[in-house]
Design a protein around this nucleic acid. Sequence first.
DNA 1: TTAACTGGAAAA
DNA 2: TTTCCAGTTAAC
Length: 676
Amino acid sequence: MTSAPDHEQLASLKSEVRKRRPQPVIGPASECPVARVLVALPLAHLDRPFDYTVPAGLHAQAQPGCRVKVRFAGRDVAGYLVERREESDHPGRLAPLRTVVSTEPVLVPAVRELARLVADRYAGTVADVLRLAVPPRHARVEAEVPAKPPTSSPPASSLLTEQWAAYDGGSAFVARLAAGSAPRAVWTTLPGDPWPERFAAAAAATAAAGRGSLLCVPDARDVARVDTALTALLGPGQHVVLTADLGPAVRYRSFLAISRGHARIVVGTRAAAFAPVHDLGLVAIWDDGDDLYAEPRAPYPHAREVLLLRAHHEGAACLLGAVARSVEAQSLVELGWAAGVAASRVLVRRRAPQVHVAGEHDHELERDAVHATRMPRRVFEVVRAALADGPVLVHSPRSGYQPALACSACRRGARCERCSGPLGRSAARTAPQCRWCAAVADAWRCPYCRGTTLRAPVVGALRTAEEWGRSFPQTAVVSSGGDHVIDEVDSRPALVIATPGAEPRVAGGYAAAVLLDTWQTLARPGYRAGEESLRRWFNVAGLVRPADKGGRVVVVGEPDAPALQALVRWDAEGFVSRELADRTAARLTPAARLATVTAGPDTLTDVLVALDLPRHVEVLGPVDVSDGDELMARVVVRTTRERGRALSRALQQLQAGRSSRKLTSVRVQVDPSDLG
DNA sequence: TTAACTGGAAAA
DNA sequence: TTTCCAGTTAAC
């Protein structure tokens, strides 16, 4: 340990010293001595490229797209070299590039231009978008020699168009993909249709035209399904999977396979929308209404919008698929931007399950020892009959056991004494606990009426599982939800209790499904409650066998609710078309362009003075949106869709003005997913 | 972090 | 009017 360093150690020590020594002062490169660099700055008013000189020694490495380090205001800052040029239009002296971090061209022109478009659309900065678009470098992965992708013969295009034959316009869509053109479709799938196979077929058709595809899905489970379908159709090695939860090494390996052009097809979650697919021929998104597509980091872009911007900018085809159409997708159809692709009504009716509504006030079962449940008789009967035939899905909108508690005397919500968060119970006979700070409230007393007993007005899936298990004592009960999601169940009779998005699949479909507490989903705050309910219920009902094979869906809820009526008639298009008309009349997204500005009340007052809004922009509010003890206020600004660009520009300038005056940025959200 | 710029006051 | 200096601002 204390002996003299050996030869190897000395050599590595020397190379360390060499690395640390500053660049020798030598002249700029003789060719294109100017490097245009996008610097990773958090300042909105510096959202533009900066020019640096390229020292002769870095000439060969400093290629467009590579990561560099530059000196900016006395600090070393990371950036991307975007262009080499002969001259700069900067009048002053240029500083030299400090280092080329890696010669790997990770920022391709299409993605750089996309980042600008996304930043302008969402009133953000290119630097913020690039943080979402380009994964962190992983040096070891970058140095790996990639395995040669196996060559595979693409499937015959007749096989691919056949895959889409059930849909009017489906085969034609795929044929146009294979011919290298850029059709745009909003596709409504048949219930039970294995959509990952259709996505794979569309990607394969695009590949037949020599172009790449980008397939976005909501979560890792769907990624796995499309991954399987792509492997089955095209063989291994033709595509990559790109999700954030893969871990940095795997994620970067996938990213490099795409950016180097070794893989031409990508399937991934929302961040994959920025994947640098070469010669992009198709962008596709499954169930674009899923709120997992809303990026939670600034500037909060939505994957669907990113893909639409890309399709437009890169001349790619576009496919939006779902069981229930989103209002945005409907808008694309009604604007004539995309064609609706769906099966005939006859076929839909044949494939859909039969849907009944059981009113919540129907004859409830006696609350005896065996049936201690809030279950209308109709539900009990359908479930009992279906359980003879296969698994039954019970859909509960809330996870947990008793996610909310209230005073049983005055019915006011029970709150934590320490932080005033909501109290809930995580299992039977445990003490109530705060859902924010986890404090146990074992001696709770109502601050209003001094009551000491709690009731559970909201029932979670775990509690539902417990109750249903008692009602059907001979039946296996499977719970899927929260951090315990089950992918698939077999087709033996079982009660499968699941929360939204965690529904296990079953080969051949469920014998029946029960949608519980539909009022809860419909009563969610915001104007999207109806659309979101519809999306969830159609996704559940789509897992059930066709009516002629006995498939039944029982919905516990208010029979007159339009979203429920749409489910009974299996008519999502009609619902979203009316919803779009309503939103147009009410000047809401997507007919109008909305944005929110959120800040502390005093800051927001300053903002409203400084904000130079274009004409025809309404300002609604401010309203108090304080969360816990942090005071926050919010305004909604709104204009027509056509004036959306100008609105975004004004909001961008607001942030630029604030950052140049060294004020903190405010939270600006263009097209927030909802207004809660 | 730091070079360039600004404007105000003193000197001529 | 010129020069100097301190505080400000932009940042390649």
